[in-house]
């Protein structure tokens, strides 16, 4: 308790110093991300089972998804991963203004991703492909097709929900960035947000080939 070191305003009383606090924050975030991997992992496991059982239906369903939109979203999300990595880098250097700029860029890209997703969903609505809402499939394999689109919507929907939460986190962090609360000594919230955002990017890196690119050559 009786530390002689200069007392940083962000240092919580139950930590000895900022190094310990930063280490704890990073580790906690990684533990949380391990949890997230398993959360999406349950979906991926279910997806794998049905892809194994109903490969033909999955090929047919996948061919109904527009590669252009999916590819565009992949590019957007990778770019946003880059911008958020830059934001963290600037926070480490105490460049307050640049952190703000990179955050805004990330926000724009994130909203762009969600916009594209909304367009795709509305197309699916018109094509009567949303299970639980208006799913209709008159061809063979109607059941497995419905299962494919159920996975498509649950997986991309859960991913989009994570994006929305990410945007919310940015809105919460931006006033703090403006108030110049973060610097080389204390930037854990920015860094942890970055880790979260990169994780969401990684999920999409797997979702894109697994949903959009099955059996395109057939």
């Amino acid at each position: 308790m009786s530390k002689t070191a200069s007392h940083h305003p962000a240092l919580q009383h139950y930590f000895d110093d900022l190094k310990q606090q930063h280490g704890a924050a990073t580790m906690g975030m990684w533990a949380f991300l391990a949890q997230e991997i398993m959360f999406f992992g349950g979906l991926f496991a279910g997806y794998t089972v049905y892809r194994y059982k109903y490969f033909n239906a999955f090929v047919e369903g996948s061919n109904l998804l527009p590669i252009a939109w999916g590819g565009l979203n992949t590019v957007i999300l990778i770019a946003s991963s880059f911008t958020v990595a830059m934001a963290v880098r600037c926070a480490q250097q105490g460049l307050h203004r640049s952190v703000f700029n990179w955050f805004m860029a990330t926000m724009v890209l994130g909203l762009g991703f969600l916009g594209v997703k909304a367009i795709e969903y509305s197309h699916k609505y018109h094509d009567h492909l949303i299970p639980g809402l208006n799913f209709q499939w008159d061809g063979p394999m109607a059941g497995p097709m419905k299962i494919f689109f159920s996975f498509y919507f649950v997986m991309t929907g859960m991913h989009a929900l994570h994006m929305i939460i990410g945007v919310g986190l940015m809105l919460w962090l931006i006033p703090k960035i403006r108030a110049e609360k973060f610097g080389p000594q204390y930037y854990s919230p920015i860094e942890n947000f970055g880790l979260y955002w990169h994780f969401v990017d990684i999920v999409w890196i797997f979702l894109f080939p697994l949903l959009y690119l099955i059996g395109r050559h057939l």
């Binding site: 070191a5 200069s6 110093d17 900022l18 190094k19 480490q92 460049l95 080389p184 000594q185």
Partner: peptide, 20 residues
């Protein structure tokens, strides 16, 4: 982009976090 990061005077003081 604004100026360089301000130089912090934390030489030798343990418990400071050094970003990589």
């Amino acid at each position: 982009m604004s100026a360089h990061a301000p130089d912090h005077s934390h030489q030798g003081e343990h418990g400071q976090h050094e970003p990589h």
